[in-house]
Design a protein around this nucleic acid. Structure first.
Lengths: 314, 314
DNA sequence: TGCAAGTCTGCTCATATGAGCAGGCGGCGA
DNA sequence: TCGCCGCCTGCTCATATGAGCAGACTTGCA
């Protein structure tokens, strides 16, 4: 394609897309046959001169979703558009909305849904509509009795998802991380707790998020870890946590001792699930999202465009 | 359009524009008739959910050009796209290129073209191709013997435009602004100078730019004015200059005494021309572009998207 | 210079899309 | 409750577009 044709293809594109002329009319204007105009337009598209964007909070990026499925081996991927997003909060809201939509459309409807907790999960619970399902029982898959004033968020999330889905919630009555291994083992041997974990292991689907390994972590906010603890984990290679367990960029547990004091499904138990939906969005979670996908923790990923492109192109 | 339809129109748009499905295929996927899909797509477009952009340095914005013609009474307007512009310099280059293209395509070819000088005009001269016209004679319409080391730019501009157009240049051998009115009158009564100005008044077309009233002005760089002079002009309401003459936001001369010492066509003489092409781009020239269009100094405007939108929407 | 390969052009034909219309449906007022 | 009005649906038909093909043209090489 020489320069003249390139320029003509731009002129044709202007008339076609901005002025809504037919290819025939454009041909008359530019003294070309309509077939030539059609070819110029095809070339303009193919060379990337034409960008078509869908501007809507609910817009998704299907080509990126396809690439995630094909190149990263995911069973499914939902990628929300970042176009026109004003703030990280808005991105988070869009992603939560998409996750809620995905759950609502899920067939067959899971009878038992295992959920983690945190800011993302809470937001998803808020975006779900009443009646999004009928008779979905929700079970917590990791400990989360909050130690600070925001107590109850973890429970509220599970309960909201269950209620709106016409089912009931089974809570895991335990802190996320315990100070002593012995305490953790004692709690897990409790009949109720063990029963909840068994139920969690049998769930039809898991819905969880991941947190970044930094000072904004919900574990610091909740009092389970100190900033110094997290700094140490980062030094050991942590990129973030999944169901309270900190992993490195390959998805390996960075601190086995800490992990042993963490209550809930282990990562291997999580990986045993058939449908494992991870919802991870935002700049700060690029690294942990990569680790989650790389290590096969999720089979379905709900994320934003920028994170998806990070996974694909580094 | 209720929320369900809005969402469907987004899903349909994704499949249509990103996945290149036919409306019929989309209908099958979403369990709709193909006519419904067509209507959803039409609504998505109409509500502005679909944005189509042409990404190319030579891309123009025809709808904005139309609005300029219709709403600001211009005979013609050329608006270059700002999409993907990295720097103000690139915007300037795109606009100069567009001006060169416009001149090249101009029919009938002007026999005599009056030109001003400055950074913009110089750049246009560089973008013109050899043989852009045959036998175009170029005449300077305002004084411009440069006083500093960049001497000759004004002359070089006119000569380059003429040479590449297969014609010759007639230079106006005079400074732009003189210190004393008497000197200016003496120069203008000189046979050669008067002859050039007469020739300029008879030109078939004028090509000129405008400068901002700030310290980047080419008049400061050339030594005709000091920074203090320009500050004073701004205080009097100047928004910029056209052929060396400073105007306010309504296009009126802000300092008649200074104007009287400025050599070249007066603004009224400029307005007598039939084809008056102004080339004005860049953030700093929004105000002066508005003044030029508002006061009818140009009949054709070549500008960038942001400036055009400023003229239209304030 | 002459030939062969590849490219470009303008066509035919099949398909996709948009305009416009008749019937059905729901909402609203009497 | 009935009947009218207006919107929405699914259609027919006209038009716009894309696929594929045969011939012309250019280009590179001997």
């Amino acid at each position: 394609m020489d320069e003249t044709d390139e320029l003509l293809s731009i002129r044709a594109a202007e008339l076609y897309y901005e002025e809504n002329k037919t290819q025939d009319e454009i041909g008359q204007a530019l003294r070309l046959t309509r077939w030539k105009v059609g070819r110029l337009l095809a070339q303009a598209k193919q060379r990337g001169f034409i960008r078509i964007e869908i501007l809507h909070p609910r817009a998704r990026r299907l080509p990126i979703e396809r690439r995630l499925r094909e190149e990263r081996g995911l069973e499914d991927a939902i990628v929300v558009s970042s176009a026109g997003v004003a703030s990280p909060d808005e991105l988070q809201a869009r992603t939560a909305q998409a996750a809620a939509d995905y759950l609502t459309a899920l067939r067959p409807v899971p009878r038992t849904l295992g959920v983690s907790w945190g800011r993302t999960l809470f937001e998803i619970s808020q975006h779900l509509r009443n009646g999004w399902a009928t008779g979905v029982n929700v079970v917590q898959i990791n400990g989360g009795v909050s130690l600070n004033r925001r107590a109850g968020t973890a429970a509220a999330t599970a309960v909201a998802i269950a209620q709106k889905g016409g089912g009931s919630a089974t809570l895991l009555p335990s802190p996320a991380i315990l100070e002593h291994l012995a305490t953790k083992e004692a709690i897990e041997s409790d009949r109720v707790v063990a029963g909840v974990i068994d139920l969690a292991r049998s769930a039809d689907a898991y819905l969880f998020s991941a947190g970044p390994a930094d000072h904004t972590s919900v574990h610091i906010e909740s009092g389970y870890l100190t900033e110094a603890d997290v700094d140490l984990l980062v030094q050991k290679g942590a990129v973030g946590d999944v169901v309270g367990r900190y992993i490195d960029s390959e998805g390996n547990i960075v601190d086995p001792a800490l992990d042993a004091r963490t209550v809930g499904l282990t990562l291997d138990q999580l990986r045993d699930g058939h449908l494992r939906i991870a919802v991870i969005a935002g700049r700060s979670k690029h690294a942990v999202a990569d680790a989650v996908v790389r290590s096969g923790l999720c089979s379905v990923l709900v994320t934003d465009e920028a994170t998806a492109l990070h996974l694909l192109d580094g």
